[in-house]
């Protein structure tokens, strides 16, 4: 009797815990299904175009920008940096491999030894440090140029984040997921409020993009950022955007490449698995 009770109990526990924490694969399926139901007229890959997929005026403006892309000169600067040897004679290729088109898809990746998420930008700066070079600043400028170049070279390939079946990796993923859905800041808003639940609606003058496909075109080139810079450089990393959106919640932004943002990126990029890379792209 006792045995049966224990057996039932443990079976119940297994069923319960399986229910309480869906696997990343299940999350991905729900996430996709949700958006495909919400925007039945749009193909999966079309959603990555964000507000340009949802609104004809934005689409026209965007297509006009993409004809003479304002990011081109900065992608070229990224290429030059990629090719330029470090003082010790080595270069980025010694860290990432010779083919610049094969780098973007490997990130973000789980580092099993150090038990942490490694983003492309983190890897770029760790490569520099390992070779005795000063690391770049995290959110814009050279780091965004190199990252944009690697994204540009990977255009047409699909986002492919691997979440290994390792309790620590799953913990990082769950942490990022929790951050995404949690209410935050004085305004008590979550990322999901704006980019899942009310995606496609307008908040004051702004149309809200779906989170599905968000990461495919990062680093992004924003007109707003270009106007703020001296030389028209509007490129910024994903973590720069995270900081901006945290401010929209009236919450204090975290540091770029902090554990919180890297875990968020792990979840956020995984949700776009299977979608086509189109970096960099123009946004308002």
């Amino acid at each position: 009797m006792k045995k049966i009770a224990t057996l039932l109990l443990s079976a119940g526990l297994v069923a319960m815990s399986a229910q309480a924490v869906p696997s990343p694969q299940e999350d991905l399926k729900h996430f996709r299904d949700y958006f495909q139901r919400k925007f039945p007229g749009l193909k999966l890959d079309e959603l990555r175009n964000g507000i340009n997929a949802l609104d004809e005026n934005h689409r026209m403006q965007w297509e006009a920008m993409e004809e003479f892309p304002p990011y081109e000169e900065f992608v070229d600067k990224g290429k030059a940096l990629w090719e330029k040897p470090f003082k010790n004679g080595k270069s980025f290729a010694d860290c990432f491999g010779k083919d610049p088109s094969k780098v973007r898809v490997k990130y973000p990746q789980w580092d099993a030894k150090k038990k942490r998420v490694v983003t492309l930008e983190l890897a770029i700066n760790e490569c520099r440090k390992a070779n005795g070079e000063k690391p770049f600043k995290w959110k814009k400028g050279p780091i965004a140029w190199v990252s944009a170049y690697l994204g540009y070279m990977a255009r047409g390939q699909k986002i492919h984040v691997v979440i290994p079946n390792d309790p620590d990796a799953l913990k990082a993923y769950e942490h990022g997921k929790h951050f995404f859905y949690a209410k935050r800041g004085q305004l008590n808003l979550s990322c999901a409020d704006c980019h899942v639940k009310y995606a496609g609606r307008r908040i004051r003058g702004n149309l809200l993009s779906p989170a599905l496909g968000h990461v495919t075109h990062f680093p992004v080139f924003r007109g707003k950022w270009a106007n703020k810079s001296k030389d028209g450089d509007g490129l910024g990393t994903l973590h720069r955007r995270y900081g901006g959106c945290n401010k929209q919640q009236r919450a204090r932004p975290f540091k770029a490449q902090s554990k919180v943002y890297r875990d968020l990126e792990f979840f956020h990029q995984y949700m776009s698995n299977g979608m086509t890379i189109n970096a960099p792209s123009y946004r308002e």
Binding site: Y198, R201, R202, I203, R204, G205, N206
Partner: peptide, 22 residues
């Protein structure tokens, strides 16, 4: 006022411009 209620972010209100539709 965007820095105060900013009700227009989400609600249409007579006399307000650029209202959201949340």
């Amino acid at each position: 006022d965007r820095k105060k209620g900013n009700c227009l972010a989400c609600h249409q209100i007579e006399g307000g411009t650029q209202a959201g539709n949340i």
